[in-house]
Design a protein around this nucleic acid. Structure first.
Lengths: 364, 364
DNA sequence: GCATGTTTTGGTATCGATACCAACACAGTC
DNA sequence: GACTGTGTTGGTATCGATACCAAAACATGC
């Protein structure tokens, strides 16, 4: 049975083996076009017998369609993160079952002008569309890709150029909701630790905080608002200084969970009880946040859904007959109250050891 | 100057524009073969003027070489992790500057028999080689891919089939070193929390622990050895039970950092001081481990280097004229002593607030 | 029977770049 | 001038699958 050639088995080989034309074989194996049941079976049998594998490269050349979506992201700093993993999972979930696949590009791979190189690469590889995962976004970045004239969507950031589709989390709304949660608990002395002010999401979260404070006529104390760079260590230092002051806030809203951990650590060092003497809130809902002590009150972001929306949008652009509109989508962030926040002054309605700590948040 | 066609600009277009043959154009733009300086400039100028972009798909078809390396990993559960991010970064670092690129495949994308589908896919896409990132490894898994007869290397796991190359971290050695570190501090009452016993690395870490104990003639107390599933929550529960006993260990070695956090949390709940009354050690050296209080003594794994080794191996197989040997590589894990371990009984030579906490570990 | 419509099949050109071989130019040497 | 060698060019076939068109097979109506 093994009439193997040394090289690759092609459709022509099958055509020869079955006595049919290559075109008929293609119709069977390429899964389109009508072929009589009889011959279809003969072809499939021969394909199996010869261990045939379709060559996608050849198909791509002829079909002018690679069935690849490019995902562009800065490897350094993003790829190993919670966020990116979820987004990628979301994209893959949508792509599973379709013929499309992910092609990954590193937006920072070489030197600085690499953005253009990266764009050129996507062009060369003929990806059908691009998903730019970009929490920090220089203005030039999306523009360079927009010039490629291929379908494109930005995830996790809001570009200035309104002609470019994007999907992002409602950081503003999430921060606003969290601030209101803290206010409703009865706090008025509220501190805020933000992220780097050149990051879109950090800016939005701070704006949400300030807006809520203003709406409730609570003064934002400048010395209680700090920039924390989104990392635990810096937030810890800042908090040590802040909490050592005689006049300190009764609640601190950190713009991400990592920083909230730092605040909690600092409080612990200074023997300040959380949440009795200090409420702490974060943003992100990392896996650990449901599990740490005390379980962290935070804002969950629908990261996986970002991936869903982005992938579905590109598939629609590529496959629907209708001319697809530009998409500007903001997915809501969800408040997740846990036990690191409580009413000020220890009059606490919650237990210290929150039972919810032992339930995994069903975030996303 | 804009003599644009509506469709794609091809090398033939440039040939026509310059009056040269397509072959000469190819030699310039394909960057191989010798062409006189004069004509080279003419071609490059025309290419720029016409906004030419090389079509990699066409080249791939002719060259029988896609310059793609497949990276196969279970998206669910791995892609968003610290480990995977670092490995991927390592791979990309090696690939940067070469013509190769990463093509990502989800080993769990559909149903269970998908492993074969996934393998077929890699075949169809003509990837030059495969990197299987697989912390948990069924025996069938690598075998299915090995049948593809393409260069392949397994990362983060050690396959039974010795004919398949792999690169892994020396979990055994790392655990052994950590156990000795604890013993050298003076501990003899040492507990161990392992990972799931169906995971290779968990098994190796436990073996390393037991070996070191044996070598130092210290009895392993069965009730102090537990299975913790690599997660904070379970480890916390286990530790609460364990530490509440009248006869409890003076040191606990958790087989990963997440579980060590759980141990520390439990100790805190029970008012047991770390490291004065209980030393705690982990394994992984997550970013947080250098920053938490107390900074965690742990074992750093060279994840990025795993990616380096794997990618370099495949490039060598694909490009070196020599027949490349099968690679079995174990990279050493590095002991990172911090302040969560100390001599037993509070006779501690270290400060409670370790200054090293404020230095980022330069791991990887 | 013939005209007409529908479905199945085959031949051939093509996607865009490159491998291979043959042709050609220009040195330098006898 | 003829001969060899090196370096540069062009023509053509090809990678493997599919688009397009034409031919063939079959069914249906008059």
């Amino acid at each position: 049975m093994g009439e193997r050639r040394k090289g690759k088995v092609t459709m022509s080989d099958i055509a020869r083996a079955t006595g049919l034309s290559p075109m008929t074989v293609s119709r069977v194996l390429g899964t389109q076009g009508t072929v009589s049941e009889d011959k279809r079976k003969r072809v499939l049998a021969a394909a199996k017998r010869l261990n045939y594998h379709l060559d996608i490269v050849a198909r791509q050349l002829r079909a002018k369609h690679t069935f690849q979506l490019g995902v562009v992201a800065p490897f350094q700093g993003l790829v190993g993160t919670f966020y990116f993993g979820r987004i990628l999972q979301g994209i893959q979930q949508v792509l599973t079952g379709t013929e499309y696949h992910i092609s990954l590009f590193d937006s920072l791979s070489e030197d600085f002008n690499d953005i253009r190189k990266c764009a050129a690469l996507c062009h060369e590889r003929r990806v059908g569309g691009l998903i730019l995962v970009a929490p920090a976004l220089s203005a030039r970045f999306p523009q360079t890709f927009a010039n490629l004239k291929m379908p494109i969507i930005i995830v996790g950031s809001t570009p200035k150029n309104k002609a470019i589709s994007h999907v992002d989390v409602d950081n503003y709304g999430g921060a606003h909701a969290m601030t209101e949660h803290i206010i409703h608990l009865g706090h008025t002395k509220i501190g805020f630790i933000g992220g780097r002010r050149d990051l879109q999401d950090a800016i939005q979260r701070e704006l949400g905080f300030r807006k809520a404070m203003k709406q409730h006529d609570i003064l934002v104390q400048d010395e209680w608002v700090m920039e924390g760079e989104y990392e635990t260590r810096k937030a810890f230092h800042i908090s040590m200084d802040l909490l050592a002051k005689s006049n300190r806030p009764t609640a601190i809203f950190a713009a991400n969970d990592l920083m909230a951990y730092g605040v909690i650590d600092a409080a612990r060092m200074l023997n300040i009880k959380v949440p009795d003497e200090l409420s702490v809130a974060g943003f992100d809902d990392l896996d650990e946040s449901a599990l740490c002590v005390p379980a962290l009150t935070t804002v969950a972001q629908p990261m996986m859904e970002l991936g869903h929306v982005a992938a579905r949008y590109l598939l629609d652009v590529l496959n629907l007959p209708e001319p697809p509109e530009i998409l500007h989508s903001q997915l809501p962030a969800r408040l997740v109250p846990r036990s690191s926040t409580a009413a000020p002054g220890g009059g606490r309605p919650e237990q210290t050891l929150d039972p919810s700590r032992f339930k995994l948040s069903q975030a996303n």
